[in-house]
Amino acid sequence: MSDEEFLARFGEVVGQDPSSLSLATDLKSLEDWDSVAYLGTTVMIDEGMGVAISPEVFADAVTIGDILAAARAAKG
């Protein structure tokens, strides 16, 4: 999944216009980044990349890019 595609899908999960997001966006700045969004992100990555990311990723990630990096690392 490309960076752009990831941001587009992530935008849908958190209800944000993807053009307002970048891989450097701080997750804490997103109003809807919460436990429901965790589920949506898990599904989005499982569907799009075929990998179920560890829930610890959500606790450790600071930016959107951190989540994408973790997903790519999990996929190997």
Binding site: S35, L39, T42, D46, S54
Partner: peptide, 24 residues
Amino acid sequence: AEGNTRSAENFYMNGAAVFHFAIT
């Protein structure tokens, strides 16, 4: 952080972890 109140005497669920468990 999400405003959920509980003590060690209450039921706790890590929703993201359980979801991950279920879909795998």
